[in-house]
Amino acid sequence: MILIGLVLVGGGVVAGVWYYFTPKYTRVGYQPLQPVAFSHKVHVDQLGLDCRYCHHDVERSWFSNIPSSSTCMNCHNQVLKDDPRLALVRESAATGRPIAWVQVHKVPDYVYFNHAVHVNRGISCVECHGRVDQMDEVFHAKPLSMAFCLECHRDPASFIRPLEKVTDLAWRWSEDPAEHARQQQAWGRRMVEHWRIESLQNCSACHR
């Protein structure tokens, strides 16, 4: 009896770990404290900054850069220029010491993800990062596991959008979900064909 019990408990633990210790549960919701209380909601939603104002290299490189303190100071040398919340930013811009932001989104070292090719080919920031424009403090919205990546790679037509709408995180084809889905499929399939989107599923695409 004890043995059966142990086996059941062991099996349960293993199953639990197998299921719950996946990025969907361990990573989604991760919202670390950042050294500076930067709110995307204020800057993007309220003020209307485009993602690429700060993350300018997202279209040029695999790495979507965190903006330098000099980018912040473009406005904040006038706006809220003595506000204590920005003390670290001003100090960084003055001394040259970088602000040590906590990294929220990271894929494992054996995955080579490239931002530029996704952003330039119709994948919006919202697909992987969620509604960042509504976040006061950035949290990990999607699992970013391999299964998550394959969901889109297996069906790119459901996810690509016109290039000019890539940074418009709230954008949909229509407010009606059924209509949105219909238009998305119609347009998506045409564009996958037209743009010759490969949407690679073989290992060499990401694991070099």
Partner: peptide, 8 residues
């Protein structure tokens, strides 16, 4: 941690 430039 991610450390961008202070002056890019």
């Amino acid at each position: 941690r991610l450390m961008p430039f202070a002056q890019h």
